[in-house]
Design a binder for these strands. Structure first.
Length: 314
DNA sequence: AGACGCGCCTGCAGGC
DNA sequence: TGCCTGCAGGCGCGTC
């Protein structure tokens, strides 16, 4: 379940492998990957359009906001040499969803059965030679909650982002993040704090796991109502979220090789040292009380009923 | 307008 | 053994 740290870890690897490379071709094996989960009526021409839009483009780099990642695309190398300086004008949005993975492969490698799309890449432009062996970036996604799409770049919250990511807020690990504004926006919410933390338009990058971890570490009950919670406490949750995600990122930036740009969506590729998530029925590491499980906003939530006292509203 | 709930997917665990 | 149900979850969109 990739959340911000996992996506960032993937982004780092993807950037290393693709920045400066040229997309020499592409293949959409399952066109559903081009739609959102709500719009799955993708016809064959969409796949053709995708391939046509990316083929010949140069990858400038891989960027990320929250759980949204994208490749910034420049002009073709030939056109670029005519003088234009590399201003990205297009992006290839990549959302990993629940089970998405990106892997670097040799073209001759066996195609994994959940491979939904392939980008064929070559370093240093289209010229061939032993130093410019073709290779592939493959998007593998068992559940197809992930998404690929070619998008114009638009300005949103202080940055250029793909158009379909213009509604999400900055994430706590990016320069454009403004904690003060985030707390002000959060403090207006009357929904459960847990749900608010998952609201990507408020701040992005937090998923179910790190929401539970942040609340546990800050000692705040998931059902606390932000509008009725002291802003210093809201700030504490944000700080906990930021810290737990950067710790996870530190632990996750490991193991790269040519065939594996990391993230094993199914099992988790590093030990996250989780204190609350998935520990229902086990003892709280702090006080020994049994960790409770409950559904909040349709999501399973884990918390210590002793360390995270229920709110006493009347 | 904010809040909520559904549907999209697949694989696996658990019950009968 | 095999079938069925439930669950996991991010996110877009429809509904109230």
């Amino acid at each position: 379940m990739p959340e911000l740290p996992e996506v960032e870890s993937v982004r780092l690897g993807v950037h290393e492998w693709t920045a400066g490379a040229t997309i020499t071709g592409a293949e959409v094996i399952d066109p559903r990957i081009l739609g959102t989960t709500s719009q799955r009526r993708i016809d064959a021409s969409a796949a053709d359009g995708f391939v046509a839009a990316v083929t010949g483009r140069r990858i400038i780099g891989a960027e990320r906001r929250g759980k949204f990642m994208w490749l910034t695309l420049g002009e073709t190398p030939a056109l670029d040499q005519l003088g234009g300086h590399e201003a990205p004008d297009l992006s290839l949005l990549i959302h990993l969803g629940m089970s998405g993975q990106l892997r670097v492969h040799q073209p001759s490698d066996e195609i994994h059965r959940h491979t939904r799309a392939i980008l064929r890449l070559q370093r240093g432009g289209a010229q061939s030679g032993p130093a410019h062996e073709p290779y592939e970036l493959r998007f593998i996604d068992q559940r197809i909650f992930g998404h690929l799409g070619v998008q114009p770049l638009v300005h949103a919250s202080g940055r250029l982002v793909p158009a379909s990511a213009n509604h999400i807020a900055a994430d706590p690990l990016e320069a454009a993040f403004e904690p003060g504004l985030t707390i002000t926006a959060l403090a207006k919410k009357r929904t459960a704090l847990k749900s608010a933390l998952l609201d990507q338009t408020l701040l992005s990058g937090i998923g179910n796991i790190y929401a539970d971890e942040a609340l546990f570490r800050a000692g705040i009950h998931p059902l606390a109502i932000p509008a009725r919670t002291r802003q210093s406490r809201l700030a504490a949750v944000l700080e906990s979220a930021t810290r737990v995600m950067s710790d996870a990122l530190q632990a996750g930036g490991t193991s790269f090789d040519a065939l594996y740009v990391n993230v094993n969506g199914e099992s988790g590729y590093f030990d996250r040292a989780l204190l609350a998530y998935g520990r229902g029925g086990q003892e709280c590491v702090r006080c020994g009380t049994e960790i409770e499980k409950m559904t909040i906003g349709g999501r399973t939530s884990h918390f210590c009923p002793n360390c995270q006292k229920p709110p006493r509203y009347r």
